[in-house]
């Protein structure tokens, strides 16, 4: 009994210590921005591997989710004779919720895990240590470009996701099911507000991008430098990122759209 309580306490202290380490790590990464001439090419390379290489999965997922929303929405709305509202439904769902959340989840699985594994492996093969011994701070040289790249890439990916999704929904709704294109767009434009819906959605993706990238690079940097350690760190990245995204989504939605 006492043992269990002690174990619980130890676990709590471990969690607090990890949060503290993650915070100190973040300060180390964010202070001291490298010279633009050095930092910029590094950032571009990371944006490529984090953002551009995630594009395929984002576009395909966005297309299918939009098409499914189109089908489902049509079946439900046609019962009320208001299938013209399908555009509004698809756009609001994607821009407010599915765009940011699904993109962040896919990002954690595709790019976040890769970041963790890459950094973890660099740690295990002493690349980070050797960089430190060459008088180069790996936090600035290796971690910072990756963190920023994730932070920048996610909002872009989410915007593309929403756009492709709406297009997919239009494909199903207008081209296949015969909703008038005019009322599709018209309803959408009448009900989607730029500041309330689009910008709030973008704000969500900014938060998610920051959290997902932070978790990914921290797990890589903090991992036990063995094969088992790296594999567990990769798992943690995906699990923690997903939970953080879904939890934060609820909080952000409540603050943005909740009436209280």
């Amino acid at each position: 009994m006492m043992d269990n309580i002690a174990a619980l306490g130890r676990l709590g202290l471990d969690v607090i210590a990890t949060v503290g380490r993650a915070g100190r790590f973040l300060t180390g990464v964010l202070v001291g921005v490298p010279r633009p001439s050095v930092g910029f090419p590094l950032l571009v390379r990371q944006l490529y591997s984090v953002g551009v290489l995630s594009l395929a999965i984002i576009v395909v997922s966005g297309l299918f989710i939009g098409m499914v929303l189109g089908l489902q929405g049509y079946t439900i709305l046609s019962d009320y004779g208001s299938e013209a509202a399908i555009g509004q439904m698809i756009a609001l769902t994607l821009v407010r919720e599915l765009g940011p959340v699904v993109t962040a989840l896919l990002f954690a699985g595709r790019a976040g895990s890769a970041l963790t594994a890459e950094i973890g492996l660099m740690k295990a093969t002493e690349q980070l240590s050797s960089m430190e011994m060459m008088g180069v701070d790996p936090l600035r040289r290796v971690i910072a470009p990756r963190l920023w790249a994730g932070f920048i890439a996610l909002p872009i990916l989410a915007a593309i996701f929403s756009m492709v999704g709406i297009w997919g929904g239009m494909l199903v709704g207008v081209e296949w099911l015969g909703v008038f294109e005019g009322s599709f767009w018209g309803n959408m434009q009448a009900s989607v507000s730029f500041t309330e819906d689009v910008l709030n959605g973008v704000f969500k993706t900014v938060v998610f991008g920051f959290v997902c990238s932070w978790i990914a690079v921290f797990q890589g940097y903090d991992c036990v430098p063995t094969s088992a350690g790296i594999s567990s760190a990769t798992t943690k990245t995906v699990v923690y990122s997903s939970l953080a995204v879904l939890g934060l989504d609820f909080v952000l939605t409540a603050v943005m759209f909740g009436d209280f």
């Binding site: 492996l121 660099m122 093969t125 002493e126 690349q127 240590s129 050797s130 960089m131 430190e132 011994m133 060459m134 008088g135």
Partner: peptide, 16 residues
């Protein structure tokens, strides 16, 4: 100070 030091790691630690 570290710029004046070189260190050869056991694994080589080349950037892959």
């Amino acid at each position: 100070l570290r710029e004046k030091m070189g260190m050869l790691f056991q694994s080589g630690a080349l950037f892959t």
